[in-house]
């Protein structure tokens, strides 16, 4: 997992660059301490994610 400085629509929103092995639950665990909050990330990235189980390395996800 790798995080980067904030970019995107709101420059102060964190962005996570997906790496191999990432899942939304793992990302939620990293940023929120709670994997069950994966849907927060999914909903914030509906413009690039169609399925919460399908994320790909290199994708930049907003972390609200």
């Amino acid at each position: 997992m790798a995080d980067t400085p904030p970019t995107g629509d709101n420059p102060y929103t964190q962005v996570h660059v997906v790496v191999a092995g990432d899942t939304l639950s793992k990302i939620a665990q990293k940023y929120y301490g709670d994997p069950s909050l994966y849907n927060q990330i999914f909903q914030a990235n509906r413009d690039v994610l169609k399925d919460p189980n399908k994320i790909f390395p290199g994708q930049k996800l907003k972390i609200p």
Partner: peptide, 12 residues
Amino acid sequence: KVEVLSKSHHLP
């Protein structure tokens, strides 16, 4: 961020 973290059962 505060709103989402407030829903977390275990903070990072």
